[in-house]
């Protein structure tokens, strides 16, 4: 199954840094998502897009993770040559990550 099946997501941008939230629909999936969707896996998932460090913040009261990714927006929204210079679509790309069905 895909992360898309159990979580939703939104991307924000600040300069050349992108942040992606991953929010579970059902709190019972939070622990599983927290265990599997590590910063290392996110970094690997975005190979070729994100060139910098990926840091993860946990917000258990929201059932949410927040990934902050450095050097992710082609030099920054205002100078990037990318079609989606804000990286707005990255949220959907992250939800394409495969996640093992129940452990």
């Amino acid at each position: 199954m895909k992360l898309f099946d159990i979580a939703h997501s939104r991307t924000g941008d600040k300069g050349n840094i992108s942040n992606i939230s991953v929010i579970v629909y059902d709190q019972k999936d939070y622990e599983r998502v927290r265990e599997y969707v590590t910063p290392e896996r996110v970094r690997a998932h975005f190979k070729g897009i994100v060139n910098g460090e990926v840091v993860r913040y946990e917000i258990p009261t929201l059932g949410a993770l927040n990934f902050v990714m450095q050097d992710a927006l082609g030099g920054g929204v205002t100078r990037s040559l990318a079609l989606d210079a804000h990286g707005k679509c990255l949220a959907s790309a992250l939800l394409a990550m495969d996640i093992p069905a129940k452990n």
Binding site: H8, S9, R10, G12, D13, K14, I17, N19, S21, I23, Y57, I59, T61, L62, G63, A64, N66, V68
Partner: peptide, 27 residues
């Protein structure tokens, strides 16, 4: 939930000219 994390980095340390706001325990 989607909007409170929009363009936020460390939810414990949301810097504005007025305050260092902490959204890490928000409900």
């Amino acid at each position: 939930k989607e909007q409170i994390l929009y363009e936020v980095h460390d939810p414990k340390t949301y810097l504005t000219p007025d305050v260092t706001a902490d959204f890490s325990q928000i409900t």
